[in-house]
Simulated scan of single mutants.
Amino acid sequence: MARRTKVYEGKAKVLYEGPEPGTLVQYFKDDATAFNAEKRAVIDGKGVLNNRLSEFFMSGLNAIGVPTHFIRRINMREQLIRAVEIIPLEVVVRNVAAGSLSKRLGIEEGTALPRPIVEFYYKDDALGDPLVSEEHVIAFGWASQQDLDDMVQLALRVNDFLSGVMLGVGIKLVDFKIEIGRIWENDFQRLIIADEISPDSCRLWDMRTGEKLDKDVFRRDLGNLADAYTEVAKRLGVLPSNGKVMTRPTLIN
Rank of each mutant, 00 (worst) to 15 (best):
V25H: 11
T250M: 05
N159V: 05
L213H: 12
P67H: 07
T250P: 00
P114K: 03
M76D: 11
V137T: 01
P88V: 03
V92F: 05
E78L: 03
M151C: 10
F35H: 13
D150G: 00
G65T: 02
T23R: 11
M58I: 05
G243C: 04
K46P: 04
R208Q: 14
R104I: 02
S241K: 08
E38M: 10
R77I: 13
I71P: 12
I86Q: 07
D31P: 00
W205C: 02
V96K: 06
L173G: 08
S241G: 00
I87E: 04
R3Q: 08
R82P: 00
S163C: 02
V66S: 02
G22F: 13
Q146A: 11
S198R: 01
E20N: 12
V169G: 07
L236E: 10
V118K: 02
I138W: 05
G45N: 09
F56A: 01
V158E: 11
V93S: 07
L105W: 14
S198A: 10
T250D: 09
K172C: 08
L113V: 06
V91H: 02
N51S: 15
L49V: 03
T68D: 09
K46Q: 04
P21I: 01
L204G: 07
A12P: 02
I43M: 08
D44Y: 06
A12D: 04
K234V: 03
D147S: 04
V238S: 00
L131P: 03
F120A: 05
L191E: 08
I178M: 13
P19W: 14
R52P: 01
L127E: 12
P21F: 07
L173T: 13
R82N: 01
G45S: 08
D175S: 06
F140V: 15
N50G: 00
T111S: 15
P21V: 00
A63F: 09
D214L: 14
I138L: 14
A37N: 14
R104F: 10
I87L: 15
T111F: 13
F28K: 00
V92C: 12
Q79E: 14
I86S: 04
D44K: 12
R115T: 13
K39D: 15
G181P: 06
L156N: 01
Q189K: 13
F120D: 10
E196T: 01
N159S: 10
R52N: 10
V165D: 02
A98F: 11
